Simulated scan of single mutants.
Amino acid sequence: MTDDEVVEAMRVVARVGTLPPPATQEAVAAAEEAIGFALPPLLRRLYVEVANGGFGPNEGILGVSGGAAQGNFADIADLYQDGPDPSGRIPAGLVLIYDWGCTIWSLVDFRDPAGVMWVNYEGECWPQGVDLAEWLTSTLAGTLTVERLLESHSCGT
């Protein structure tokens, strides 16, 4: 799917569900400042044109300030309040966006405009082999599962 198609597909999801309203440009800018990297263009569009998080797998991804929260985390910048992962296991620019539970997280690489997706499991971090558009498309298709995330590591991708 193109970025435009992903945005439109998420708009359909937003109309059906109870997603938060879109984020303000100020909230996005504040998240970028806290994280130290610009959001990938597709993620920025989704936040300001569709909803401030809440879309994606299950209960949806974290938003920026004022958007969808997940567990103990208010938004994507909340995880960066003390800077990048102090253990050094998660490189700066990889942003935790969705908690699958059981110490499994999906992350977006803010260093790459395509928003390459990564997995963090029990402190180990590896690329998933898809970008944000493909990740969200898999979510819509129902093919994105925890098992597939963990397979991406064992298959060496």
Rank of each mutant, 00 (worst) to 15 (best):
Leu79Thr: 12
Asp109Thr: 10
Trp135Arg: 12
Glu49Phe: 08
Leu94Gly: 04
Gly88Trp: 05
Trp126Thr: 13
Val16Met: 13
Ala51Gly: 03
Pro41Phe: 02
Val48Trp: 04
Asp99Met: 00
Arg44Trp: 07
Glu122Asp: 14
Met10Arg: 14
Asp131Val: 09
Gly17Arg: 15
Asn72Pro: 04
Ala133Pro: 07
Leu140Lys: 06
Asp85Ser: 12
Pro20Lys: 06
Leu140Pro: 08
Gly88Phe: 02
Val12His: 11
Tyr121Leu: 05
Arg148Tyr: 07
Leu96Met: 09
Ala92Trp: 00
Gly54Thr: 06
Pro21Leu: 03
Trp118Asp: 04
Ile61Trp: 08
Arg148Met: 08
Asp3Thr: 05
Glu59Phe: 12
Ser87Trp: 05
Pro21Phe: 00
Glu147Lys: 14
Val16Asp: 09
Glu26Cys: 05
Leu43Met: 15
Glu8Ile: 00
Gly129Ser: 06
Glu59His: 13
Met10Gln: 15
Asp131Ala: 05
Asp78Gly: 10
Ser65Gly: 10
His153Pro: 01
Ser87Phe: 03
Glu59Asn: 14
Ala14Thr: 14
Val116Ser: 13
Met1Tyr: 02
Tyr47Pro: 02
Gly56Leu: 00
Thr24Leu: 04
Glu134Leu: 04
Trp100Thr: 07
Glu49Pro: 07
Val95Ser: 00
Pro21Val: 07
Thr145Met: 08
Leu150His: 08
Pro84Glu: 05
Phe110Lys: 10
Glu26His: 03
Leu94His: 03
Gly67Glu: 09
Gln70Phe: 00
Ala51Phe: 01
Val116Phe: 03
Gly93Cys: 05
Leu107Ser: 03
Glu124Asp: 14
Val64Asn: 01
Ala27Glu: 15
Asn120His: 03
Ile104Val: 15
Ser65Pro: 08
Glu124Gln: 13
Arg111Phe: 02
